[in-house]
Nucleic acid binder design. Structure first.
Lengths: 135, 135
DNA sequence: GATCTTCGGACACTATCGGTGACCATGGAA
DNA sequence: TTCCATGGTCACCGATAGTGTCCGAAGATC
């Protein structure tokens, strides 16, 4: 880790953990975006469904209008989501996954599946931990 | 979405997007934890490696001591990471993935791999978007 | 034609959360 | 005796996310 401006790995690093953990590394930046809690939900919801802004807002419980707007902007900028504006009144804006977004969807779905499959184990672990701490 | 205190889905919801998006749903809570940017890095780094606190702090560029502490506490509570304290001076604390954490590692690694595989596409999309916006 | 409604979004304000730097305990090294 | 290394904790502060309000435009209603 000698050159902070590049994403280079020594062989030692490769052996040890295979990917760059430097903050300014592009992979890190994309991961931060993709692993965002709202982004995950948006991408998961847009699988096979074109949705309007209001539909997304309705389906994602707890998201604010502002966060949905910024999340969609980010995803659009990254080429994961397409935004189609219809010049009608009241306005209609459709959001859908791009082909690139669809490739990501598989991975995100596996994350969701993992969570569903292991939520009881996690609940048990949490209960055990809390018991240990308060004891 | 009529009962805010339970994680129940109507058949319509299942057809439409397959998982609960309610904010108080346990899956959502676990996802928020697991999809955290620091958690991702910690889990990825702990693959096949037991690491000490300082090693993690050194390897994860940009993480503060407080965030590393809280992230590790969360992961420990969720049963994904084990914490071993050696009663020596100066203190020595080892962190490692639990079996449960190892099952998550595969998914996280696929997320990282996706990011690596598509970072150039994303860079292109971003450039195009920025050009369109500033134009 | 006045007014209401709808939808996507901008904006100002506020609360919360993460970052920063100081401090701590301890025993061995210098 | 002083210093340091290690794994933390804590108080403070700024950035970031959340909340509520307002908006623009056209069609429906009266």
């Amino acid at each position: 880790m000698n050159s902070p401006s590049r994403c280079e790995l020594t062989e030692e690093d490769y052996e040890a953990f295979q990917w760059d953990t430097r903050e300014d590394c592009e992979v890190r930046q994309i991961l931060d975006r993709v692993a965002d809690k709202w982004s995950l939900l948006v991408i998961a919801l847009l699988d096979r469904n074109t949705l309007r802004f209001t539909e997304l807002k309705y389906k994602i419980d707890g998201i604010s209008q502002r966060m949905l707007t910024t999340t969609l902007r980010h995803l659009e900028r990254d080429g994961l989501v397409s935004r189609t504006v219809y010049p009608v009144v009241p306005p209609r804006v459709d959001y859908a996954l791009t082909p690139l977004g669809m490739t990501l969807h598989k991975t995100i779905q596996s994350l969701v599946t993992w969570t569903e499959d292991h939520q009881s184990e996690i609940a048990v672990a949490r209960a055990r931990y809390d018991k240990r701490v308060t004891a």
